[in-house]
Amino acid sequence: MLKIENVTTHYGPIRALNDVSMTVAENEIVCLLGGNASGKSTTMKTILGLVKPTSGQVVFLGERIDGLPTHAIVKKGISPVPESRRVFARLTIRENLEMGAFIHRKSPDFHIRDEMAKVFDLFPRLKERVAQDAMTLSGGEQQMLAIGRALMAKPKMIIMDEPSMGLSPKLVGEVFEIIQQVSTMGIPIFVVEQNLRKALSIADRGYILNGGRIVLADTAKNLLENENVIKAYLGE
């Protein structure tokens, strides 16, 4: 479904990704694991067109998307849950969800109320607070809002950057449960994580990124049992 082929990405002279290839297939949860500054967010940004790769290509549903502007990539069906949530602080929860559905604002067979009702089924806590500004939500609730907002786009795929960041262990558990739930709705998920064990416990496959290179790729089960994983992750 999503194919990243030999992608190298630079920030000026700094090479953040080095010949990275990976795939996400239908109905999969794929995780990308790596330590700080390993290039996880850069991979997300490259998929989303927020940075352009210097070489290689990104293919989504058989079509090259590198080179397209971000909003056009999102319209093709990739919905992001960005690093540190990036909810619109001074928009209400309802307005944030409406922004998630922005790409459907002109389609007559899109019913925003129905979509919002689905999100509220998943996150009842958001429903109680629809008219509040997003900045009044706790970190965990903001994460729920960011996921709900991505779902509002009726995406063909969701990509998440560190959804567990800054959350208590209990909330991290909740977020990963939600990810599994979203996956059972038939939406493939590509999730970037530092929480190795948790991420692998829900994923089908995983990639390990270090210094901008993929150093290991395997099924989640194999990675969980492979004792070299921690070493690869730490770059030893």
Partner: peptide, 15 residues
């Protein structure tokens, strides 16, 4: 308003 608050996040909404 969303764009004024965070243009990159707005792009990520397909705006």
């Amino acid at each position: 308003r969303a764009t004024a608050a965070d243009w990159e996040a707005a792009e990520m909404m397909g705006i």
